[in-house]
Computed example of a mutant assay.
Amino acid sequence: MSAQARPVLIAAGGTGGHLFPAEALAVALGKRGVRVALATDGRVDRIAKTFPAAEVIHIPSATPSGGSALAKGLAALKLARGVLSSLRALRAMRPACIVGFGGYPTVPPVLAGAMLGIPTLIHEQNGVIGRANKFLAPRASAIATGFRKVKGIPESMAGKRHYTGNPIRPAVIEAAAIPYSPPEPGGTLRLAVFGGSQGARVMSEIVPPALLSLPEEARARLAVDQQARAEDLEAVRLAYARAGIAACVEPFFKDLPARMAAAHLVVSRSGASTVAELGAIGRPAILVPLPGALDQDQAANAGTLAEIGAATMILQPDFTPARVASEIAARLADPSGLVRAAAAAKSAGVTDAADRLADIVLNLAGIAVSQGRPADTAS
């Protein structure tokens, strides 16, 4: 079977943060007539059902970090089973290339592919290379990155490293075409507040009381879209209603990119996908990195926007109602800074990352590139 006829296997799982950029690559490859298969674990069945793949294979995986020695041993055993399962699947599928998007569900298929001599590529979305990708990097044929600077990748691997940016979903690309419209003097300030499954609670605990503490005339100028966990919904809605603040509070927004584009200011965590989407759409932000992560990847992600004036980074211990109220009051008083921050964010945006990544994949696979452009090689 020629490389042209063989599928590209995308390995991703664990969270939407890995699945969404993988989906964007699958769409880019599909537009070029390339058949895509997905290798994932069982935790993302709902997302995987809509993934544009001709075939989905489930590979056993686990995270061998944290917990007791017994838990780590059991996780390592499960990963070994995943490698054996991957070897069988790859021999039957014979993919032209394997692309991993980080997280431990990526390890078995990418490692098995390297053992079989199949070209492999890993994509690191964050500003710090994750532990799974760090393990796979020496074995991968190529390394693509979402940021120009990524901590933890040795200089010895510079020759196989490529900066592509983080692939973004079609809905984000559509939202990126909407220009930033600054708030009118004395007019409404629209806020989009979200934090993902691990971050929505702190947003529910901090942002409503912060806005409630503002003077009545300031509260009347606010319009809020906020994601909140199901258990927090009623409390957050009631707080905004009592404060006289126009608010839409839901557990999930299917049209989140459009709501980000409609916002004057975003308040959120700083996962790689969120930072990429803020840049592509070009919106100012207050970013609160998820604390406690061993790699501190979200702090590194937020730092890329904070350094260019596109975002204000607030570490969680400093993310208090008083601090948030002060930040919002300053922007209500002088919205000119929002315009500068929006322009700075837009300057960091990459909207063709999926095509850049697809070019590298097809080159590794030996499949003729019919469109797109080469990716930049990081120095």
Rank of each mutant, 00 (worst) to 15 (best):
S2W: 05
I10Q: 06
G16W: 10
P21Y: 01
L25F: 04
G30W: 03
K31V: 01
V34C: 03
K49F: 08
A53I: 01
A54S: 12
V56D: 15
A62N: 04
S68R: 05
V83P: 11
L84H: 08
L84N: 08
S86T: 09
A92E: 12
R94H: 08
A96Y: 01
G100Y: 00
T106R: 05
T106C: 10
P109F: 11
L111V: 11
A112V: 08
T120E: 11
L121Y: 04
I122S: 05
E124Q: 06
V128G: 11
G130D: 01
R131Y: 14
A132I: 04
N133Y: 07
N133G: 02
P138S: 02
A144W: 00
G159S: 11
K160R: 11
K160F: 03
G165Q: 08
P167H: 08
P167F: 00
P167W: 00
I168Q: 01
P179H: 13
P183S: 14
E184G: 13
E184S: 15
G187V: 13
G187D: 14
T188E: 15
L191A: 06
A200F: 13
A200H: 02
E205V: 14
P215S: 14
Q227F: 09
A235C: 10
R237C: 13
Y240G: 04
G244F: 12
A246V: 15
P251Y: 12
D255K: 06
L256E: 15
M260F: 12
H264C: 14
V267W: 01
S270H: 13
T274E: 03
T274M: 14
A280T: 03
R283Y: 00
A285S: 13
P291N: 02
L294C: 11
D295A: 10
A300G: 07
L305G: 12
G309F: 07
G309W: 04
T312N: 09
D318R: 13
D318K: 03
A322K: 15
V324M: 12
S326H: 04
S326M: 08
I328S: 10
I328H: 12
G337P: 13
A342K: 02
A343R: 07
K346D: 14
G349N: 13
D359E: 12
V361I: 15
L362K: 08
L364F: 04
A365L: 05
G366E: 11
V369Q: 04
V369L: 09
V369E: 07
S370I: 11
S370R: 03
Q371I: 02
G372S: 11
P374A: 06
D376E: 15
T377A: 15
A378M: 02
